[in-house]
Design a protein around this nucleic acid. Structure first.
Length: 422
RNA sequence: GCGGCUAUGGUGAAGUUGGUCAACACACUGGAUUGUGGCUCCAGCACUCGUGGGUUCGAGUCCCACUAGUCGCCCCA
């Protein structure tokens, strides 16, 4: 029997973890600067939290890990927004927090999809939600936060795609116009599009199958159906981005997969040719009615999610130097019958704040030196039987010269020599 | 859910038209060298080629199924 990770899941081995810590640290710093606060919601929720009425997205309809326990049906979260808003409503945070309430989250998400480059069944998302206020400035600020994270990872080959879905009135008008336009062509469209025609005609524009059909090219544009207010809102978002120096591209086809979006939607994609089919680094948008869906007041919100695996992979491809974990400063070797002296010496070093390792099993001198080499320690401390008697040790310096130091003064000596790393 | 490609030790891999011991390199372990290492030299390191069937006198090499990886479609972070 071979044991291995389930399909689409993977282990992050110690070798890889520095990259994650680096990204997480930068994210923490940036969310702090923007005054966002972390929220942790369960990894599974009542299925109804994710499976909403009138939701036509595949993610919700066929990619969820749903399981039953007794009478209850639960689902592993496929995305972060639903849980955060559920918590916001459940705990009535609209009354307890200053609005807009600002949340960030980081954790695993689960979708039962076929794995490929940049897509796993368990993957990690960082996301933010800004709930309870609505303004073009907030939309721009939200995009800026994500953009800052991407920049902090030294990723430069990305572009911001942006679009507006308008308010309810604009969308309703557009929806009717689209249905009218596509009605005569319905039989030419793919099966998915025929389903979308009823459920969410906007998504037809997103279709890859029917992309090149004439009726797509002649389809009315959403921008033609925006009312005055929606147009002004979007223009102001763009103006803010201009002022912040964030380059963007308006993409009229961008409607996003989740059905709850209104007004501003955006997607930041990699422009690297080696990014594969899953090039989106982060994506999100505004939602006018999602907060009330779970029983809260009719507040608007905006958020986005970053795919952490994609972020880290891109940073790697772009040559970002990940912050490394602290190296070993001192390695302690024991020769002969030295009892617990090695252990005590290493502990003294650690208590003095020095990253240290010691040889704890009886091994040949050669093997111990080899470990010392591999640990990358700047200093090798050698303790033999004579030294134990005298209360001293031999310290090998980086230039391979050797000095005798009393065990009591060893931590101070190593600090003095600049031993504690950088 | 659909399609292409792939699958040999800890790692990178070689394995000819199916026919001896499954190369080579790195890594690892031990020794030369049990009070001083990173060099060198020597030795060891795949009862077996993702799993299960089949064809054959004979299969790592051919066929089928399954599993996994990978890339693409769908979808999406």
């Amino acid at each position: 029997m071979n044991y291995q990770t389930p399909r689409g899941t993977y282990d992050i081995l110690p070798e890889e973890i520095a990259a994650w810590h680096d990204a997480e640290e930068k994210i923490r710093r940036i969310t702090e600067l923007y005054r966002y606060r972390e929220i942790r919601t369960p990894y599974f929720e009542d299925t109804k939290v994710f499976k909403r009425e009138n939701d036509s997205s595949d993610m919700v309809n066929k990619e969820m890990y749903t399981f039953a326990m007794g009478q209850e049906s639960y689902t592993l979260r496929p995305e972060g927004t639903a849980g955060v808003i559920r918590a916001f409503d459940q705990h009535k945070l609209y009354g307890a927090m200053e609005l807009p309430a600002r949340f960030w989250y980081l954790g695993a998400m689960f979708r039962h999809e076929r794995p490929q480059k940049g897509r796993q069944r368990q993957f990690t998302q960082f996301g933010i939600e800004n709930i309870g206020a609505k303004s073009p400035e907030l939309d721009a600020e939200t995009i800026a936060l994500g953009y800052d994270i991407v920049k902090a990872m030294d990723i430069s080959s990305v572009k911001v795609l942006i679009n507006t879905l308008g308010d309810d009135e604009s969308r309703a008008a557009y929806r009717e116009a689209l249905k009218q336009h596509f009605a005569p062509y319905l039989s030419e469209l793919c099966g998915d599009c025929q389903r979308r025609y009823e459920q969410n005609p906007l998504r037809i524009l997103d279709c890859k199958v029917d992309h090149d059909k004439d009726c797509m090219k002649t389809a009315p544009k959403l921008s033609e159906y925006l009312n005055e207010e929606s147009r002004a809102y979007f223009d102001q978002v763009l103006r803010c981005l201009d002022e912040l120096g964030i380059p963007y591209e308006i993409d009229e086809r961008l409607v996003r997969g989740l059905d709850y979006y209104t007004h501003t939607v955006f997607e930041v994609v990699s422009t690297r040719p080696d990014s594969g089919a899953q090039a989106t680094v982060f994506a999100g948008g505004r939602y006018d009615h999602f907060v009330s869906y779970y029983g809260g007041p009719d507040l608007s919100g905006i958020g986005f999610a970053i795919g952490m695996e994609r972020l880290i992979a891109l940073a790697k491809e772009e040559g970002h130097a990940f912050k490394e974990e602290p190296a070993c400063a001192a390695y302690v070797i024991g020769l002969g019958q030295v009892g617990s002296t090695v252990l005590k010496t290493v502990q003294d070093l650690r208590r003095a704040g020095i990253v240290a390792e010691g040889n704890m099993v009886p091994r040949s001198l050669k093997a111990q030196f080899k470990s010392a080499d591999r640990s990358g320690a700047k200093f090798t401390v050698i303790i033999g039987e004579d030294e134990v008697r005298n209360g001293t040790c031999n310290v090998k310096l980086p230039d391979r010269s050797q000095v005798s130091v009393s065990l009591r003064e060893l931590p101070a000596y190593i600090k003095e020599q600049g031993g504690n790393n950088e």
